[in-house]
């Protein structure tokens, strides 16, 4: 396994399965009375969040604390960061503090890569710009495995929405491909990258046609700033063509599940009745996030600096 987790594409099939299997054991800790393991006692995990994301930050924080790591939340607000300190200087500060791992969320694609050039700690990408969000893809795969009750070889997954700007889509396409699933990306052409011949995924502009044989339909949020930039004419039309409503849910096979990385815009990409249905996994995804992040922190922080673990 690589020393850092920057891209889902860096994970071999073996690595990915090891993380998912480990996460399954970590999940049992959440059911115990003592929800804490001593594994990372004396290690320091820094949450370096340049974007507000209470959900992801909290998930990493709970994960690190369950493993007994010391957690420092270094949020951009109210710190030296907001006073104009550069990412490099912040990295040097964290290095001097002896951080063992830095979990970074940043609006700039590639910021986690840059961080690895300036400090020794293990770097975990918690979402960088429009690039990647590998732990989200891992928790999505974990949730799929759990719900489908099997490994993902041959599973059919549709990812629907703003693929162009989605770090969740980029990470999911790579990880799902690694795990043997078939991915179809569904979006209007304006919300797909122009050049994606090397992406291991099919592309469709027609949601109805894509739903007939899926095992998983993953809906992505469309951010407010896209709505005024002519990526599509109106919210109403987008919702009509690419929203998942009750009618479309009925087109899917009965066991197929609906996923959403959140936060959802009800009535836009997903109808309230679909989000609340038993087919939706949105709450499980949040819970599984902690287990997967425990697995990632455990595996990265207990391998030696060459990236070698044993077993």
């Amino acid at each position: 396994m690589n020393r850092h987790l920057l891209s889902a594409g860096d994970l071999s099939r073996e690595d990915a399965l090891k993380i998912l299997d480990t996460a399954e054991q970590m999940a049992t800790v959440g059911d115990r009375e003592v929800k804490k393991l001593p594994t990372l006692r004396g290690r320091t995990v820094v949450n370096l969040f340049y974007e507000d994301s209470t959900r992801t930050r909290t998930s990493f924080e709970v994960a690190a604390k369950r493993l007994s790591a010391d957690v420092i939340n270094f949020s951009a607000k109210g710190s030296s960061v907001s006073k104009g300190e550069s990412l490099k200087d912040t990295a040097l500060t964290l290095h001097a503090m002896g951080a063992d791992a830095v979990v970074i969320r940043h609006a700039a694609s590639g910021a986690p890569h840059r961080l690895t050039q300036w400090l020794d700690a293990v770097v975990v990408n918690a979402g960088d710009g429009t690039h990647e969000h590998p732990t989200q893809a891992l928790l999505d795969a974990f949730t799929m495995r759990q719900r489908l009750g099997r490994d993902l070889d041959g599973a059919k997954v549709a990812i629907v929405g703003d693929i162009l700007h989605s770090r969740v889509a980029r990470s999911n396409v790579q990880l799902l491909h690694t795990l043997g699933a078939h991915v179809t990306l569904v979006a209007p052409p304006t919300l797909l990258p122009r050049d994606m011949q090397t992406w291991p995924a099919q592309v469709s502009y027609d949601l109805d046609a894509a739903l007939g044989d899926v095992d998983v339909c993953m809906m992505l949020r469309v951010q407010a700033e896209r709505m005024t930039a002519s990526y599509f004419p109106t919210v109403r039309e987008y919702s009509r063509r690419y929203g998942l409503d009750g009618r479309r849910l009925a087109l899917m096979p009965k066991e197929a599940i609906v996923m959403h990385p959140g936060p959802m815009v009800r009535g836009m990409e997903i109808a309230g009745e679909v989000a609340d249905s038993s087919r939706a996994t949105i709450v499980e995804q949040v819970r599984n996030g902690v287990s997967v992040r425990m697995a990632v922190l455990y595996l990265l922080l207990t391998q030696d600096s060459t990236g070698q673990g044993t077993a």
């Binding site: 694609s109 980029r170 990258p193 122009r194 050049d195 011949q197 090397t198 992406w199």
Partner: peptide, 9 residues
Amino acid sequence: GEVSSQLGL
């Protein structure tokens, strides 16, 4: 191009 689509730039 292909690289920008991968890198999210």
